[in-house]
């Protein structure tokens, strides 16, 4: 019932998520932030069961912080992805976290990267990705529009097209989306540009 979208561009990664907090047929609030800041250069977009999302992403965030205190070095995005995947795989055989993630990060010498991780602990390095029912609408747009080396405006344009499509055709109403970008300067939170509604609706 939730949608998270990730996109990798030239020197940056975008993670975008709807802001509904809902369960069953009830929507509790429409300004939930589902994109966790892990450290100054890492974003973790989440979708799944509310409590599991919070419990697991906070656990990851605290472990990333602990690593930095213990070792004086920050975990790379790749290492963070591997850590998350490993812990989800361990949890899978106990009482799995129902949480699907998109990890976007920027590392010196490596550049921006985006990882797609689901609750079954599969993990892939991707150029774009989407979790939730929304992916039925969004993936085709990303497939058609994504190219190598997108600049920031072009990347945001694609994200806005995805949001427009969701708000036009998707049964579940998602009035607000949050967009976060990570690049060499750190993390920025963007206001959702008012999407242009599709014609002939």
């Amino acid at each position: 019932m939730e949608t998270t979208i990730g996109l990798l561009g030239n020197g940056y990664a975008i993670v975008c998520a709807d802001q509904n907090a809902a369960r069953s047929i009830v929507c509790f609030k429409k300004d939930e932030d589902k994109i966790m800041k892990l450290d100054d250069f890492k974003l973790l977009g989440q979708s799944g069961v509310g409590a599991d999302n919070v419990a697991f992403t906070e656990y990851v965030q605290k472990n990333v912080a602990l690593y930095k205190i213990n070792n004086g070095l920050s975990l790379s995005t790749k290492a963070t992805n591997n850590f998350i995947r490993g812990d989800l795989a361990t949890a899978l055989r106990k009482g799995p976290y129902q949480t699907n993630l998109l990890l976007g990060g920027f590392d010196k010498g490596v550049g921006a990267s985006l990882y797609y991780i689901d609750y079954m602990a599969s993990s892939n390095k991707v150029n774009f990705g989407c979790h939730g029912y929304g992916s039925n609408f969004v993936l085709s747009i990303l497939d058609r529009e994504w190219t190598e080396g997108l600049d920031e405006a072009a990347g945001l344009d694609i994200i806005n097209k995805c949001i427009a499509e969701l708000q036009t055709r998707f049964l579940i109403h998602m009035p607000k989306f949050l967009i976060k970008i990570v690049d060499k300067d750190g993390i920025r939170v963007l206001e959702q540009n008012p999407p242009v509604l599709l014609q002939g609706q």
Binding site: N71, L73, K78, A79, N81, N82, F83
Partner: peptide, 12 residues
């Protein structure tokens, strides 16, 4: 390496 998918920093 199993946990993080990267080689351990030497000092660690």
């Amino acid at each position: 390496t199993y946990q993080y998918g990267e080689a351990i920093p030497v000092e660690q």
